[in-house]
Design a protein around this nucleic acid. Structure first.
Length: 486
RNA sequence: GGCGCCGUACCCAAGUGGCUAAGGGAGAGGUCUGCAAAACCUCCAUUCGGCGGUUCGAAUCCGCCCGGCGCCUCCA
């Protein structure tokens, strides 16, 4: 059966039929780089990471594009707001591009730490000004946009389908209007494609309409269509981007090309703290860097993937601690299974106690159903637990364990990315502090033995340590120093 | 005010018409153990915010009510 995707456009699950067989062309809205990413970003990008990984597991070749927004985005929509990156640059007395670059690296650092695979293409908005201008020119030529005083606006009345994604109607929007009316706009809900820049503005580019900078929505249309085509399979992002951002993307893209823009719209739900949305503007966010000081990357992944991507996720230390414990136990059990596998003989005559394939089918069934990662985790737990039970009974053959291990690897590593790459080989860097601590403990015990004048035993310890390259030096004052040659 | 989502055990969280309501955490009891910890085993919602309705049958569909949240302004 085909993968079922909940399409925001239509609000129901649909079978995923790629435009090109075997390929997935996918775009996910990336971050605006003016501050460190927070747990909300973690949820979004870990969720889509698991989705991309699952498509690949399923044999699709995925072209995954995720933008870096390094210009644009005003602090409000009354057209009086300031570009957030420029605001930060002014505050920190930096060039705007220094700000964008600094937080771009911060973003990738955090994503790498969380095991989020990098997109195939990470286009920057400032690197695609030409494409954006070309798109705006097309919209002007086709009569979907108009220019006023060096700014260009999209004429919302020319696109009757406006609102089809978010389920809004223009009349309703006007009824609830709270934004200040911009006198340049013909309709209050026309949105900017290009903004005129006054001379003091820091980020500006030449255009047919004078010096200016692109509007908020145009970059995603320009870059997604450049790399994925005028119509592509999947466009994802946070729920908070459905309106107006994605609605406007649809309007300007479909107006420009006359074709459907995106076939499946996917939106992840938001992270809340004490039930309230976590966001930069509310200031209640926890950065990924902060979270990583308390919890391991895989704990955060586990926490995120243990709820469905379309469900809200409430952050609390209690929930994170629960996730940490659960993951630890999972890793312990997997480690035990792998150890058993490495020691298993060729006792191939034992019948498989249960069908590993049945678990694989279950895993695929739940992931096929709109990427139900919580259930995938449940399947993994059941598989691991049941295998461990058999281990105790001595009923697991080598071939059987190999099958189990392959499935654990597929679910836990390849798709969910929860398990360390190689459980049997911790890297030496992380082991050294432990080794040194062990030496210290041994030396401390020996010091206690010497106090009790148990010389043969303390001498034996010194010799054994020496044979390992650890030299012990007893000082006249009774203290003991040591060093090792590794 | 408009649009939409959610409310499942102590906590997190699947399930959206029909086998005994997944899984994890916490908790309780037990095995093991010099003690402790770890590990393992067992137990832990006749019930799904409330009240009605549809149905042979509902946590799942419909209506109303209560509670929480999101979008309508930049946000993943």
């Amino acid at each position: 059966m085909a993968i079922q995707i909940f399409n925001t456009l239509g609000r129901k699950k649909e079978a995923f039929v790629p435009l090109t067989p075997g390929r997935v062309y996918m775009y996910v809205c990336g971050p605006t780089v003016y501050s460190h990413p927070h747990l909300g970003h973690a949820k979004s990008y870990i969720s889509f990471d698991a989705i991309v990984r699952y498509f690949r597991y399923r044999g699709f070749r995925v072209k995954y594009v995720q933008n870096i927004t390094d210009v644009g985005h005003l602090t409000d929509d009354a057209d009086s707001g300031e570009d957030k990156i420029i605001k930060k640059a002014r505050e920190e007395k930096l060039d705007p591009m220094e700000v964008a670059q600094y937080y771009t690296w911060s973003y990738f650092d955090d994503m790498d730490a969380l095991g989020v695979l990098r997109p195939n293409i990470s286009p920057h908005a400032t690197g695609h000004i030409i494409e954006q201008i070309e798109l705006i020119k097309t919209l002007l030529k086709k009569g979907y946009a108009y220019e006023v005083g060096g700014s260009v606006y999209f004429d919302i009345t020319r696109f009757p389908e406006y609102g089809k994604l978010s389920g809004r109607k223009l009349e309703e929007l006007e009824a609830g209007a709270r934004i200040e009316v911009n006198p340049d706009k013909r309709n209050p809900f026309d949105f900017a494609l290009w903004k005129h820049a006054d001379p003091a503005h820091l980020m500006k580019w030449p255009s047919p309409w004078g010096l200016g900078y692109p509007g908020w929505h145009i970059e995603c249309s320009a870059m997604s269509m450049k790399y994925l085509g005028e119509t592509f399979d999947i466009h994802g992002g946070g729920l908070d981007n459905v309106f107006p951002h994605h609605e406007c993307e649809i309007a300007q893209s479909e107006a420009a090309t006359g074709r459907p823009f995106v076939r499946y719209w996917m939106h992840n739900n938001l992270v809340t703290v004490n039930g309230v949305k976590m966001s930069k503007s509310l200031g209640n966010f926890i950065t990924i860097k902060e979270a990583l000081q308390k919890y391991s990357p895989n704990t955060i992944r586990y926490f995120v993937l243990s709820s469905h991507y379309r469900s809200p996720l409430d952050f609390s230390d209690q929930a994170l601690n629960g996730a940490q414990r659960g993951l630890e136990r999972l890793v312990t059990m997997v480690r035990r299974i792998r150890k058993a596998l490495s020691q298993a003989g060729e006792n191939t005559k034992v019948d498989p106690p249960f069908e590993v394939e049945a678990y694989r089918k279950r895993f695929e069934a739940v992931m096929d159903d709109d990427f139900n990662t919580p259930q995938a985790i449940a399947v993994l737990f059941e598989l691991v637990k049941r295998t461990q039970d058999l281990l105790g009974e001595g009923k697991a053959s080598r071939a059987f364990l190999e099958g189990v291990d392959a499935l654990i690897t597929d679910i836990g590593q390849h798709v969910l990315g929860l398990l360390p790459q190689d459980l049997s080989k911790p890297d030496s860097a992380s082991l050294l502090p432990v080794v040194e601590k062990l030496i210290q403990i041994t030396v401390d015990v020996r010091s206690e033995l010497r106090k009790q004048k148990l010389w043969p035993l303390s001498d034996k310890i010194r010799q054994e340590l020496a044979s390992l390259g650890i030299v012990i030096k007893d000082r006249p004052d009774g203290s003991t120093e040591w060093e090792h040659n590794f």
